[in-house]
Write a protein that binds this DNA or RNA. Structure first.
Lengths: 343, 343
DNA sequence: ATTAGCACTCGAACACATAGAGTGCTAACA
DNA sequence: TGTTAGCACTCTATGTGTTCGAGTGCTAAT
């Protein structure tokens, strides 16, 4: 167990390092008003903290920097959240100032503002589209052998995909098909679509539509194919501002990983509720071992959820980011829920 | 006017520097089989070429590198295009191997393949959506005060936007409105939409729809608002591979500029036909003064055009990129035209 | 007209010295 | 017994001098 004094020194060390990005020495610390001890005392305590694994040295005679364990302890025990400064609140509120907007626009803007406020990179995941409720389906023929399928969902999201139409199909069959689909599938969620398509409409289609099978096959393929969640970025280049990152090679790897959508689930596990902090090697991806990631989820309506991630150096301003994310998560949940319900 | 020998030396110098990224010295050059002169002779010629402004030195006793004027001369007079190597052709063709695909998918894939083949960054602009022809319009009510307007165009492009619906509007009015719009506006291009909306439908709407004005206003706003062209990137991070770029600050500026869509018109002027090469400070943006940009346009059908840009260091492999872009531009024009016509 | 020869220049690499910030340890102190 | 002053030591960063090699320009010989 750490003594009061060790706790104080650990906290001040982490705070100082987060702020300055320079290893913290005993002399430097002793000058702070909140530290009434002599450099020698501090040195002793720091040596102990190093022994316990909370601090590290970059070389034999350097000052100390927090280890991952140190950050972890700091994050777990020393985050006394303060209210957000007024300017930040004003900025956050500005996300919602546009009167009529789409869910996507709000999320996009959140990503931008968040990266501006933190100077880190933000990644926002829109609500899992599979939970969206179908409002209307339609099919618009393009050429004699292709058409575009359109699905509109409750949040104003429009999914569309071109698919092949069997040669020589009677146009009125498409008309019939879309009527049948709309009769039976409005109110169904996208994730249930495939199942319900076959369950409830296949037999009806069979009755009414000549050559239903070819048409149905390509249509189903188009409609159920990977509905990837939309990813919105803010401040992709903000890593380049961080003094912690100088190694071009590491930066390249990191940026590569962040843009590649297949890595997104590793960065922000889907379905995780609430706020999570992952420090350095706690991250699943080795390219991110020098980063910390803070994630939080938000809710739209009863069962749609999205997530927010902030990616910065391990030397991240945890307190500030946590408060920001807490607030934004709440605001987003409230406003987006209001939007899909119609105020 | 340059002598034969000067031309040869300039060409070989540029070729060598493009390949090695190292200043080229007279000894080095004299060892090449195509150069039968002694180092001393080469030195004299190089001194002349420097005097004429085609070559530069990085410091007093260094080898020579091409100046912008040198690159310009090289590009204008020394690009004897060779046919593409077989592997490249195979790769390019792979863009079109997916049977049924949307214009967007093809362009997206082109951007990717192009950046892989060149190791530079590619930017592709889809066809100006304003030239698209309307195939179908629809309006889907979402909540009691909002709806989404959808426009499907001939190329399978789906434009959609949420807009405000006046409180307490009769749902059948929306039905009526959309019927009127579809009767009169199918076949109209997006750029003519605003004009034709008011010209041909406003008076009819006035007759049939109660409170047409409020509905029409917000609808029009949604529908004619900035139809920005879609931008597709390939190999955004490829600059980081170039040894020419080491200055983090410059890299940051450059990447910033490339991602900011408002700068795109400066990088690739819209409406320019054919292939263009802009070297270093010939670019409009100062952040790109160390880059060369090669752009080319492609056509879809009679009057839709898009453009392709490759951004690399001034020390770019011009010959290869020009050949690649020439080929791709032709292929894209052919295939995309075929697609919107239905094979 | 071309080239060999030579003195000269500059950058990169390396060794070395110095200053400064930091440490650990010991002994003195309250 | 806990705290602190003092001191020797360590390591980095910075600056300086030296050497090596690749390059140049110029001159004189071919």
């Amino acid at each position: 167990m750490l003594t009061e004094r060790q706790l104080l020194i650990l906290k001040v060390t982490v705070d100082d390092y987060i702020q300055s990005a320079q290893p913290v020495g005993s002399n430097q610390l002793s000058k702070k008003p909140e530290i009434p001890f002599s450099p020698a005392t501090i040195r002793n305590e720091m040596a102990d903290l190093e022994g316990l694994g909370f601090l590290e040295k970059t070389h034999t005679s350097s000052g100390r920097i927090p280890s991952e364990k140190g950050y972890r302890y700091y994050v777990d025990h020393m985050l006394t959240p303060r209210p957000l400064p007024k300017e930040d609140i004003v900025q956050l509120r500005s996300i919602f100032e546009d009167k009529i907007a789409e869910t996507e626009d709000v999320i996009r803007k959140s990503a931008m503002i968040l990266s501006e406020l933190t100077n880190y990179t933000s990644i926002l995941l829109g609500p899992d589209t599979r939970k969206h409720i179908i409002k209307r389906m339609s099919i618009v023929p393009l050429t004699h052998d292709s058409a575009v399928a359109i699905i509109v969902t409750d949040s104003g999201y429009v999914e569309n995909r071109v698919f092949a139409v069997p040669e020589g199909l009677d146009p009125s069959d498409i008309e019939k098909m879309i009527n049948i689909l709309n009769e039976r599938l409005i109110g169904v969620s996208l994730q249930d679509l495939q199942f319900r398509l076959e369950q409830e409409t296949l037999s009806v289609l069979k009755q009414h539509i000549h050559r239903y099978s070819e048409l149905f096959t390509t249509f189903r393929q188009a409609v159920v194919s990977p509905q990837q969640e939309k990813v919105f970025y803010g401040g992709k280049l903000n890593i380049l501002n961080q003094p912690d990152f100088h190694d071009l090679h590491k930066i390249r790897n990191l940026m590569d990983v962040m843009e590649e959508s297949k890595h997104i689930p590793m960065i922000m596990p889907v379905g995780s509720q609430g706020l999570h902090i992952r420090i350095g090697s706690e991250n699943a991806l080795s390219a991110m071992e020098d980063c910390s990631v803070i994630t939080v989820s938000y809710d739209i309506g009863e069962d749609q959820t999205g997530s927010i991630a902030i990616i910065g150096p391990k030397r991240m301003d945890y307190k500030r980011v946590v408060t920001l994310l807490d607030t934004l998560s709440g605001d987003l949940s409230k406003e987006l829920t209001r939007m899909i319900r119609g105020k």
